[in-house]
Nucleic acid binder design. Structure first.
Lengths: 247, 247
DNA sequence: ACAAAAGTGTTTAATATACACCCATGT
DNA sequence: ACATGGGTGTATATTAAACACTTTTGT
């Protein structure tokens, strides 16, 4: 992926791959990179953004670098969730060909560390470099076959995200700074794949002192404008275990 | 670490390290390996069992191999929980010296994949090889300073174990096949670090149809012999989310 | 007028918590 | 006899779940 730095600095055996999640009315999205098809075999060919790590950077920094190149944002919410090291994870011929066109040591055994990242809708605009120009937001329910083991990585990232969201108030990372309770509920419904009762949801959320109402309402919507809320880190101090568990 | 196989098969940049947990009346234990001190600097020098991965094996297999060499048991309960890749994770001089005495490429950047494993008390006896002879069970509350970043790995493994135990019925892997409810309760108390009310615990556990009483009682104990129970996989079918959450 | 989401309470069921005494066995 | 853990039930508090109608705005 990123070819701007000197290749000898890259460790041939360890990479990071990132499932970048975004959320809007259309549901939960993931950012996929369309890669050039060396032999022009089939139609489009997608993969998760990722790169080999540099020998002098730690894993979180490598993932952060990949995301910065993609989004121009330096410290997105980022969480490591698993390592993938099947010796056969690079096995398809077009994956191998692509590696040969991009990597110094394309035959090397690569173990990849999986990260997921959460991005706010106001940051949906991608960087203007060649790497990011190939990026596309795809609904997680409509993800095509991906390169390498990236479908498996994505499935695993989604599971990790679900667990996280039921456990820790982290959904805000996918919403605008100011959000309505309806947006928050839709997010939980989309990620957890459940329907939630509106009144019970509101009661539960408002019982948490760290989601605070603002002196502000929605504007320009074709219905009764909703109260806007904001996440308040100061009011959030670890009263959490499993607080976000909606059946 | 394991030096029985050909070094050229080992990947110099990726290792696995295992926190092997055991439980007895004395509490939760972890298996530490005493390593030879090259320069005989200080007293004892401990680390978690681990090894570089082979280029033809996947991560789970590498962790399983490390544990098999240590215990002679082939498929211990094993769970990957995180990857550790700080470029400075090998920084102390005695760690470097030890690597120089053991590794083909002792200066290589190594990213390690952390696993934890659960072992039943009847399997506490270790293999008789030289690797295992240096192993020792140490109470998790009395773990000394370890080599590399192994204290951090162990702390992280314990957190992962706690989360797992509150989430999935997995404690049985640390108990004899037949166990009493008191043993089960002590285990939860030791791992989660809480006190649990006996009557409430029993009611909750017995409400789970997959912990079944046997036609058998304890023998030779200096108190009223307790009913023995067993975990029944067939009666366990995913009714679980967060079932083991004792405040 | 209609569409779309906002907002609001009560009842019932389920679950969690707190709590104390007698029992069987080995030493 | 004593130490050790085994075994048992109830009352109360907390939390979860089910459920329907009126309001405000833009088109």
């Amino acid at each position: 992926m990123d070819q701007n730095h000197l290749a000898f600095n890259l460790n041939p055996n360890v990479s990071v791959d990132c499932a970048v999640f975004g959320f809007d009315k259309g549901g939960l999205k993931v950012l996929l990179i369309e890669r050039d098809n060396p032999d022009n075999t089939e139609g489009k060919n997608y993969q998760l953004p990722g790169d080999l790590i540099r020998n002098d950077e730690n894993l979180d920094d490598a993932a952060n670098r990949v995301l910065r190149e993609l989004t121009n944002i330096d410290k997105l919410f980022l969480e490591q969730f698993a390592a993938f090291g099947d010796p056969q994870r690079v096995k398809r011929e077009n994956d191998l060909e692509w590696l040969r066109s991009v990597r110094k040591d394309p035959e090397a055994r690569v173990v990849t560390i999986g990260y997921y990242s959460l991005i706010k809708p106001e940051n949906f605009k991608l960087a203007a470099n060649s790497f990011a120009r190939k990026a596309e937001w795809v609904n997680v329910k409509e993800v095509p076959e991906l390169a390498f083991d990236h479908n498996q990585i994505l499935t695993s990232a989604l599971e990790a995200l679900k667990l996280k969201m039921r456990t820790v108030p982290v959904g805000f990372e996918l919403l605008p700074k100011k959000f309505t309770l309806h947006q928050l509920q839709s997010l939980y419904e989309a990620v957890l794949g459940t329907e939630i009762d509106k009144r019970n949801f509101r009661r539960k959320i408002l019982g948490m002192k760290f989601i605070v109402p603002l002196d502000e309402k929605q504007k320009g919507v074709a219905h009764k404008p909703a109260q806007l809320f904001q996440f308040n880190k100061k009011n959030y101090n670890q009263n959490f275990s499993l607080a976000f568990d909606f059946q």
